[in-house]
Design a protein around this nucleic acid. Structure first.
Length: 470
RNA sequence: GCCCCCAUCGUCUAGCCUGGCCUAGGACGCCGGCCUUUCACGCCGGAAACGCGGGUUCGAAUCCCGCUGGGGGUGCCA
């Protein structure tokens, strides 16, 4: 059975790149009828924070990625100890007493000579006696994996295809630090093997690690999983997407009021495309159905905020129901201090949801439906004075006081009445009402606003303007 | 420097494996028009790409080589 995992380290918020990795990994597992594991890699005690772990969980949940098994690396104790011993016994690993200063010097030396750095192997052939001696002296040591000379590790990457790397490029590497803690390359192998991971789906920045890990798998007698290395996501400047680019955390998009399904959908289209189809809007279920690793593009993709924004809008106006949009929008409206009633909001959305792409944009856009207080710019006030606004508004007010129009048809009829009676152009009426009711010349349909706004708000706003221009 | 990966409109991509159906398709964005009480939405139309050079072949975006360009890695981080 297929089993994949997503293994974030809680050293920051969930990043768009990692989110996409999680999505692909999740989709592949579900598509194959397999299991998806979430493993928090929190062994870096310095940088790992519980707040980040909580935030990552929240973001995954928001995206609709659910996991079947959960692990926290810090709670796995000395699971790794026995495997280190095994490697030590088999001679695949050995203690190394070189100090960081010595190694640093070797590295600089290599740099100067312009050759690829690799560990000199000085402690490679220490005799048992020498090792005991050094340990008795209390010298600290690391444990290195003995990399067989001249070997070429080959694997068939599910995305990149055939990859061959000569191990001489890196040389013996550390698997246990001098403080006794195991390093990433070692832990990841033991964990993946013990958890039965069959397919490792991760970013292509891990390609250089893969041969090291394959060597460990083999030395430990574990089955080597299949690998799928995803191309990285780039920023507008074509460098790897990072904090520098701003707005790269899932959290930022959640708080900005993007539709989560749209982010999920958009991220899928970054580096993957459906076979034989021009479609772009897919539900999670549909994606589970059609997603295949083989359809992943092997070149890096630039993240495009505009398209994500557009897609969020598509979800708001075409995919989600009015009820659903209302439900998700309410917290944003309340945060902005609006007094919201669900039934009223739903009626408003019926007519307005095609005019915004995110919930925070909706807060601005729908303001006239909820807030009676607003400023009118001088230029608009000037326009009111130029038009026959006083007459229009007085007439409008008296009609509304008597019987407020309940739908856009009635509003239009009312406008015609005023037009006939005062002999003014329709445009003049609409512009006057728009400025008087919203303080601006652009925004949602003014007929809708009049039809839906309570009578009280309507007359309050009109009277206020009447006072100012009389 | 060394190692690895990648290369179709500005961006995401289809096509490439299994050469001819490609006058290179779709989407975002952009430009123009329509709709209209404004802004949006929607609809119609447009500009816009096979990085370069060699091969192979009757024929190459598609196969091969080189160059160039971009990305990643080069830790007792993950």
């Amino acid at each position: 059975m297929v089993k994949t995992r997503f293994a974030p380290s809680p050293t920051g918020f969930l990043h768009l790149g990692n989110a996409r990795t999680a999505i692909f990994s999740y989709l592949f597992a579900r598509h194959s009828g397999g299991k998806f594991v979430l493993r928090i890699e929190d062994t870096d005690r310095e940088r790992s924070k519980v707040e980040y772990e909580e935030a990552i969980l929240k973001d995954l949940d928001w995206l609709g990625i659910e996991w079947d098994e959960f692990y926290r690396q810090s709670e796995r104790g000395d699971t790794y100890r026995e495997f280190v011993d095994k490697l030590l016994e088999s001679g695949n690993a050995y203690p190394c007493f070189c100090t960081q200063e010595e190694l640093q010097r070797e590295r600089e030396e290599a740099q100067r000579k312009g050759v690829a750095y690799r560990y000199s192997g000085r402690c490679r052939s220490l005799s048992k006696k020498e090792v005991e001696e050094l340990r008795r002296e209390g010298k600290s040591f690391t444990i290195r994996f003995r990399v067989p000379d001249g070997e070429t590790v080959v694997f068939e990457d599910l995305v990149k295809g055939h990859i061959a790397i000569n191990v001489d490029d890196f040389g013996d590497f550390v698997i246990v630090r001098s403080d006794g803690s195991p390093t990433y390359n070692f832990v990841v192998v033991v964990d993946d093997a013990l958890m039965g991971i069959t397919h490792v789906v991760r970013g292509e920045d891990h390609i250089p690690n893969t041969p090291k890990q394959i060597l460990i798998y083999k030395a430990l007698g574990f089955d080597v999983p299949k690998f799928a290395h995803l191309p990285v996501i780039l920023g507008e400047d074509r460098s790897k997407l990072s904090k520098r680019h701003g707005g790269v955390s899932v959290k930022a998009y959640r708080e900005e009021g993007y539709v989560s399904e749209a982010l999920f959908n958009y991220l899928c289209l970054l580096g993957w495309s459906p076979p034989n189809s021009d479609r772009e809007i897919f539900s999670k279920e549909e994606l589970v159905e059609i997603f295949e690793l083989k359809d992943i593009n092997s070149s890096p993709a630039v993240f495009n905020r505009d398209k994500l924004l557009w897609m969020s809008g598509v979800y708001i106006r075409e995919v989600l129901s009015v009820e659903e949009v209302a439900r998700r929008l309410i917290p944003f409206l309340r945060d902005a201090g609006y007094r919201v009633e669900e039934e009223y909001l739903k009626r408003v959305l019926e007519f307005t949801r095609d005019s915004f792409d995110t919930f925070s944009e909706a807060v601005e856009r729908l303001k006239p439906f909820f807030v009676d207080e607003f400023e009118i710019e001088d230029k608009f006030l000037g326009m009111l004075e130029d038009m026959k606004s006083y007459e229009i508004l007085s007439e409008f007010l008296s009609i509304v006081e008597e019987s407020k129009p309940q739908n856009t048809e009635e509003v239009k009829k009312l406008a015609k009445e005023i037009q006939k009676k005062l002999k003014v152009k329709p445009k003049e009426i609409w512009h006057t009402l728009r400025i008087a009711l919203t303080g601006s010349l652009e925004g949602v349909g003014i007929d809708i606003l009049i039809a839906l706004l309570p009578k009280g708000s309507l007359s309050l706003r009109i009277k206020r303007v009447l006072d100012r221009i009389s």
